[in-house]
């Protein structure tokens, strides 16, 4: 399963935010999108998960234009973990996770024992095994984020889209979530803030700046001090500790 965009442009609210993005995520790859706030990471992902209609270019899912898939079909291929998950109504954790089964259900079909089993397995995978009957609104931000990941896992899709998935998580759960995503073997496209998370987990990175693709490559090829300064306007050093690449930022190192 692959995801590709060709010359993708988008103009949410009438102003063009994305200017011709070409990217490709190959089967089983974990690909990161990096870039400063407002660079268009979320906008790009929204086009791919269809809550925003692109103004130009094409998105290919498994070599076919996304437009040709029904919403239900694309939800069988792509699961999404997005940022905002506060709901005005209260569901139990299990109910939220079971909603991940929706794209596989016919109109009047009920949740089967298998669906419940899927949900339970997904909850166990994110470390929330005992939480099924807890009410979603009582959970912490991090727990909610993991419930949403469990929902995405219960959706059993070959692809996963993550929009800053580790935002509300402490370091243990950041690593836990990325380990889980990595181990799932799914084709993953993730917008990431943390360059160290990106270098640790991603096979390939795309860097966005002002809605343009300004670089792409393997993490240790792409993330040079010069490149980080150019994209993020900060001074940083790149080192290697125990064979693993780390980005170290310099105090007061914002380069205007």
């Amino acid at each position: 399963m692959t995801i590709e965009t060709r010359g993708l442009t988008a103009a949410p609210g009438g102003k063009e935010i994305l200017h011709g993005i070409d990217l490709a995520v190959h089967d089983g790859q974990l690909v990161g999108i990096i870039g400063p706030n407002g660079s268009g990471k979320s906008t790009l992902l929204k086009c791919i998960y269809r809550t925003l209609r692109p103004t130009g270019g094409a998105i290919m899912l498994d070599g076919q234009e996304l437009e040709r898939y029904s919403v239900r079909q694309s939800a069988q291929y792509l699961a999404v973990v997005a940022q905002h998950n506060a709901y005005a109504f209260d569901f139990t954790v299990e109910e939220i996770v079971l909603m991940g089964r929706a794209p596989h259900k016919r109109a009047l079909e009920r949740d089967s024992t298998r669906d419940r089993q899927n949900a339970a397995e997904a909850l166990a995978a994110v470390g929330l095994a005992g939480f099924a009957l807890r009410s979603f609104s009582t959970l912490s931000g991090g727990e909610r984020q993991r419930v949403i990941l469990a929902r995405a896992l219960a959706q059993q899709t070959p692809c996963l889209i993550l929009d800053e998935p580790t935002n509300h998580l402490d370091i243990q759960h950041q690593l836990g979530m990325m380990d889980l995503v990595r181990a799932s073997g799914k084709t993953v496209l993730a917008a990431l803030h943390d360059l160290n998370i990106a270098t640790t987990y991603c096979d390939w990175l795309y860097a966005l700046q002002d809605g343009r693709l300004v670089g792409s490559g393997r993490p240790h090829d792409l993330l040079t001090p010069d490149f980080i300064r150019q994209v993020y306007h900060v001074e940083a050093r790149v080192a290697e500790v125990d064979g693993q690449m780390v980005v170290v930022y310099r105090k007061g190192g914002t380069a205007g």
């Binding site: 998960y49 269809r50 809550t51 919403v71 239900r72 079909q73 694309s74 939800a75 069988q76 792509l78 699961a79 999404v80 997005a82 998950n85 709901y87 005005a88 109504f89 569901f91 109910e95 909603m99 991940g100 929706a102 794209p103 959706q155």
Partner: peptide
């Protein structure tokens, strides 16, 4: 109806427009 309470965007990613 359940999905509706999660909002349009989430419902869309779960296959319901």
């Amino acid at each position: 109806l359940d999905l509706m309470l999660l909002g349009n965007d989430t419902a869309l990613t779960l296959g319901v427009d």
